[in-house]
Design a binder for these strands. Structure first.
Lengths: 250, 250
DNA sequence: TAGGCGCCTTGACTTGAGTCAATCTCTGAC
DNA sequence: GTCAGAGATTGACTCAAGTCAAGGCGCCTA
């Protein structure tokens, strides 16, 4: 997947020495650090820590449960699914990570990845050695602050779907969540692809795949959205948001 | 609630100047920092940041949703419940925090507390100004590491109950969790008080209070535990752990 | 173009947990 | 000691979502 497909994912900063630093702005770190007014020298230091890895193909594992934890990574392109497999062989999907989002934060405590991460399509990553970024964070308060924020945000996110919501509410919250996250990175908020199979959506939402199917049909019959295989269009985002409001709390 | 009631909650460290530093070892920070071999000078710096607050009485709020975030706190004694109230007036319990556990971490991102915290019984806290502890963390890598770990741990914890587990499994996981957390602080793993009403347990586990009642009765009939109002004894902890195993993943 | 294979959808039936309503049991106030 | 009220328990009924089974659709390969 070439850079050309994602023209808005790059940010240029003119360094003091006149050279141009180029960041993929999907990296939550660099973008957010920029937003927080981190100075150019600091950005330069962060820059040299980034290791661009990929492409991973659909089905490739990025890390597996039990692997020693060494790095966190920002998704640059594609979708990453994190999941665990219980002793009965059942898969439990923890989340989907879209461009700009960070994976591996839940591995800091324990020194090993507590889950698997797999590419759902062609995935590019920005990898940051955690020991190195920790050391850097002791010198750059803005970076430390950003790391604390990212971690704190994930605590809240994990709690959202834990409630006893109806199948419709769960699906609505899922779709609104994806829509907003894509929009935050400059993609369309109303037309997008579901990059994961129905079984994964069902598993993530703790529903049966049949229920996912039925809920999507209902939403389509109500004129709220239009769905054709994995192609999705939100026709009445406001009604979907209304459904999701109790979960998303806004 | 006097210190005398909790003889094992204090740790003494002889500082280089010969003075004795006294920590409440329930403070996840100081205890864990000790465990990680943080040096005495660093512990001393941490020490002066601690602000002991309380007692809070049952029903007192420690913070409310929307309050400006200023500090995180370790529970020193008692039980703290965190919860939100949705627009329909329904309460959603996020968690119960026992001695040694830290509250407020999910407020770092957003600068305001995203939930309410209320004392379920008599509560004592160790409060740490977050701006100050952040600054200190830039000088003490062990402290920064500990903060990252605490945050990371909470991400994993929030994900546990999110699965679609049966009422029995949820209840088992809840009781095993409390048992282990109390044992880690030196309390009995098999006899303890449920410091919260059934309605709060039900709400936390996303069950109806009636279901909580029925599940406890079933577990008692099976000889797994004995429960009398809020007094609880685990008679066959191994069978309870077996029930909870799929959730706790161990 | 035919065949095979995932993935998805649909319908019929089942069930675990919620809801509603009645009763019980502590506890604390007077 | 008695009463009131909150919290907890129990039973009867309901329903949302799961399970099971069958069939459809799109896509890849030969």
């Amino acid at each position: 997947m070439s850079d050309v497909a994602f023209p808005r994912l790059d940010t240029r900063v003119l360094a003091d020495d006149g050279n141009e630093l180029r960041f993929c702005s999907t990296c939550a770190f660099s973008q957010a650090c920029l937003d927080q007014g981190m100075d150019k020298a600091a950005l330069g230091e962060l820059h040299v820590l980034v290791e661009h890895v990929g492409p991973f193909r659909a089905g490739d594992h990025i890390f597996r449960e039990g692997d020693p934890f060494e790095a966190i990574a920002a998704v640059r392109a594609g979708t990453v699914k994190t999941y665990v497999v219980d002793r009965d062989g059942h898969e439990h999907v923890h989340g989907f990570h879209l461009p700009g989002e960070v994976i591996g934060l839940n591995a800091i405590d324990g020194d090993r990845y507590p889950c698997n991460a797999i590419a759902l399509d062609t995935v590019m990553l920005c990898r940051f050695s955690f020991p190195k970024i920790s050391v850097l964070a002791t010198r750059l308060p803005g970076l430390q602050r950003q790391l604390f924020r990212l971690l704190s945000r994930d605590i809240g996110r994990a709690a959202l779907l834990a409630g006893d919501w109806s199948a419709d509410q769960r699906m609505a919250a899922f779709l609104v969540g994806i829509s907003r996250r894509l929009a935050a990175r400059g993609f369309s908020a109303t037309r997008f692809q579901l990059t994961m199979p129905r079984t994964d959506i069902a598993n993530y939402l703790r529903l049966a795949p049949e229920t996912v199917s039925r809920v999507l049909r209902r939403l389509q019959e109500d004129g709220i959205l239009s769905v054709e295989r994995r192609e999705l269009e939100l026709l009445q985002p406001d009604r979907l948001e209304a459904l999701a409001a109790p979960i998303l709390r806004d």
